[in-house]
Design a protein around this nucleic acid. Structure first.
Lengths: 344, 344
DNA sequence: CGAATAAATTGAATCGTTTCAATTAAGTTC
DNA sequence: GAACTTAATTGAAACGATTCAATTTATTCG
């Protein structure tokens, strides 16, 4: 049936232990023997049985990645980073998509425990981390992705969201905008809160006389449709009382642009719009989107590296946080305030 | 350290075999014994070691899903379907993204073999299936996704691509278009070839006098940018010699629309554009895209069900193919031929 | 050349389950 | 109550790798 290490040993004319060494401590094997064994491995198409290996050595080399929405390009790119890092280290990832549901998240965490994963990378759907504590208590390494690890023994990776918010505001400010709408999600989403904090801090730093005026409007679903609905309602009987919009993410921005154009306003001549995330489609949109880019791939890559480091060295591992900087990407959806809209 | 079946047996005052039976054949155990053992399990917090179990029993309840590009919303949606089906059956999926590279594909297949997966769902990157044969020979169930299983002992799921092509053509024909561009990928991509076949068959079925004229233009990369580049070059010095474009996928369609608008042509007044796949963004694009929808989620769900069925019943399982029908979704990017463009 | 040291190799024991032939206990039938 | 059937339970033998103490082989040095 399937070929075992025993078959390889026989074919290469060496002992079991030597074949095992070829895989696990190749420098302890004489070069000629190494070659001989590798040839036998190749000839037989031998692949070590992970279960047996795990059973004896106690290492599964499997990680779990739990994300709230794999449809979101942000998480797709992130997961690519995770996968590349993990593949390089000989690990494997089980990807779990929770659809932002806590029940699904709990269910998946159970599955991961049953699968004996060595580490869990997670962007929690809820703001309470109670279910994560149980994971950590079982001795499974935990890495928070795009969240901070407050009150948790865990590593984390994230982006400086306050800085991201500030970048967006400053860009618009420099273009002359003084009446700005903030079109974003609920404050219980950590990112949303942080960026808002950054925006407000940036405003507070300005001379009082020049401070722009901020109108905050919240959408339930941070999607194209969610944004359209809310913005349409806002513009129903009012006139434009802003010259720019800072959006919670790129999807919201695309929805906003669509609504504005439908109402006969031009982007960016009448209203500048800035997104967040810099998803791949932002540059291909009909009005190419100015956005705040996050290093999505690197975020995932770094998270995986932290997780693997913890797996490899479970005893002496100090938890750490890696924080990336966001970056302003200027495209066509933002521009200077026009005389017309300035007067409005 | 961790509690084993032996500890449970001792605590409950029974033998190893009985504890095992409690988990695997509970109806072969006397009710009183069952209760006693279950109490011991609960008291000790025992969770069976998956590796040992797998090593002995040979069932991992793990499947591999290998896709060429997880950034493509098509595969994201598909993978959701796979995950939902699999979770319901108590299985787990390892998702592998090959980035259309055969080397990565081979590497991942090795990883999956090493992980002892019971089945592999795959949309192969290359058209040769040689590496898959090796998988099947190892006794691992194979399910081809969005491909047919020619010359392979395997189940497969797919969409009637010829029909999809025909739907697109007929839609444009009914709107009066007679000069149609086909903007698509290389013919060694099975889908591309099939759809093209469907289009040509549909044309051949029409009365000779009314047959539309088809111009085929190929792009290397079926992405927004790839499409823009090729179409710009085509339009360089030529005038429009078509009134509609059938695109290889939605990304290509979006690129085409962008190029046309940049040249001053209106969509759909001057040129109608039809995409393929009906990705989520198609409906949110600034010119909402008419497209051919594929049941992406169901495709994944069905594939997973086939794979699981084979795992559960490895001896007597007959391979089958499930084929879905594509569906025309009419939105704003297609319309009747205008007098102006008709005359051109 | 022989002793001492270092480098390679060996193979039995082990990891925690499942499996199944063998054993024991309980229940039926005449 | 003996003979037979059926139901429960047992425990040793796998599964396929890693580990490590023991052994063999190669190298160095006086």
């Amino acid at each position: 049936m399937s070929v075992s290490i025993r078959d390889v040993a026989q074919k290469a004319g060496v002992s079991l232990g030597t074949v095992s060494n070829v895989f696990n401590r190749p420098d302890a094997v004489a070069p000629s023997t190494l070659k001989k064994v590798q040839k036998a491995v190749a000839d037989l198409g031998f692949v070590p049985n992970a279960s047996a290996r795990t059973l004896r050595a106690g290492k599964t080399r499997v990680l779990g990645l739990v994300v709230p929405d794999i449809s979101n390009p942000f998480f797709t790119d992130l997961s690519k980073g995770v996968n590349d890092a993990v593949l390089a280290a000989g690990y494997v990832v089980i990807l779990c998509n929770t659809d932002e549901s806590s029940e699904k998240e709990d269910k998946y965490l159970d599955v991961l425990v049953a699968q004996n994963v060595q580490g869990v990378l997670i962007t929690p759907a809820r703001d309470s981390y109670s279910n994560l504590k149980a994971i950590a208590d079982r001795g499974i390494g935990l890495t928070l992705v795009d969240r901070s690890a407050i009150g948790l023994e865990a590593c984390s990776v994230g982006v400086d969201d306050a800085q991201g918010g500030a970048l967006a505001l400053q860009h618009l400010y420099e273009l002359g905008h003084r009446d700005i709408m903030l079109l974003t999600g609920a404050t219980n989403i950590p990112q949303v809160a942080e960026r808002e904090k950054g925006i407000k801090a940036a405003i507070a730093d300005m001379p009082a006389s020049k401070r722009p005026h901020l109108t905050t409007v919240r959408v339930d679903a941070m999607s194209t449709y969610g944004a359209q609905e809310v913005l349409e309602k806002y513009l129903k009987d009012k006139k434009l009382d802003f010259t720019a919009i800072i959006c919670g993410n790129d999807l919201v921005a695309l929805g906003a642009i669509r609504t504005l154009r439908a109402k006969g306003y031009d982007v960016p001549a009448d209203v500048s719009v800035i997104g967040y995330d810099d998803i791949d489609f932002a540059q291909s949109a009909t009005v190419p989107l100015t956005s705040i880019a996050q290093p999505k791939y690197q975020l995932g890559f770094a998270a995986a590296e932290l997780a693997i480091a913890e797996c490899e060295n479970p005893g002496k591992h100090t938890h750490q946080r890696i924080e990336f900087q966001p970056q302003l990407i200027v495209r066509g959806s933002t521009g200077p305030v026009s005389k017309k809209s300035k007067g409005a």
